[in-house]
């Protein structure tokens, strides 16, 4: 098993090979470091960082999306409520307006009725007044016609006298 080793020892131990291997290995390690190890491990670390960042940002955007969805849900339910309020308000306003209109109409009707009855009363008064006047005129005419026919000189004198007498009494009392 050790024969190559013993053989080597007989010829002088292969320090040269050992030295050559060590130099080659250190040199190889250095070359690997420059050409592959550094760029690849750097890229692997960068990628790990990037993936971690991506996961974080994905987490964040998911949370954002959830917040937005919640906000939208709130807004939706709020808008339902708002719509209900608006409809209720409109109903209220409508009924109030209706009441108002009815009241106005009633007031107007009342006023019209009052005006109409006042007119009627006025016309009745006017008619009454004019009728009275007519009756007076008519009666005076009738009276004058009667008086004209029946009044003679004596009677006329007596009438004038009584009238003057009456005037005198009226002055005294006044």
């Amino acid at each position: 098993m050790f024969s190559p080793l013993v053989l080597a020892a007989e010829k002088g131990f292969d320090y040269g090979d050992m030295l050559f291997y060590m130099v080659a290995f250190v040199l190889l390690m250095w070359l690997v470091k420059i050409f592959a190890w550094k760029p690849v491990t750097k890229m692997m670390n960068d990628r790990a960082t990037k993936i971690a960042d991506d996961i974080d940002s994905a987490e964040k955007s998911r949370a954002d999306a959830e917040t937005l969805a919640a906000q939208r849900q709130d807004a939706l339910s709020n808008s339902h409520q708002e719509a209900a309020t608006i409809v209720a308000d409109a109903k209220d306003a409508g009924s109030k307006q209706r009441e108002q209109i009815i009241t106005n109409a009633q007031t107007d009707a009342q006023k019209l009725r009052e005006a109409a009855s006042a007119d009627i009363e006025q016309q009745r008064q006017d008619a009454l007044v004019s009728a009275r006047k007519d009756v007076a005129d008519l009666s005076i005419e009738i009276a004058s016609k009667i008086i004209h026919k029946q009044l003679n000189a004596d009677d006329q004198t007596a009438l004038i006298d009584s009238y003057i007498e009456g005037l005198g009494k009226d002055d005294q009392t006044r």
């Binding site: 292969d14 040269g16 050559f20 291997y21 190889l28 050409f35 592959a36 690849v40």
Partner: peptide
């Protein structure tokens, strides 16, 4: 120092193989 020809050549070839391996695989990072 005593050098064995076979070892020197073989180590050099292995060295070149490893270097070629990592060199050509690491061109586009």
């Amino acid at each position: 120092l005593t050098f064995h020809t076979a070892n020197i050549i073989s180590i050099t070839i292995a060295f070149i193989l490893v270097f070629a391996f990592i060199f050509f695989l690491s061109r586009k990072i």
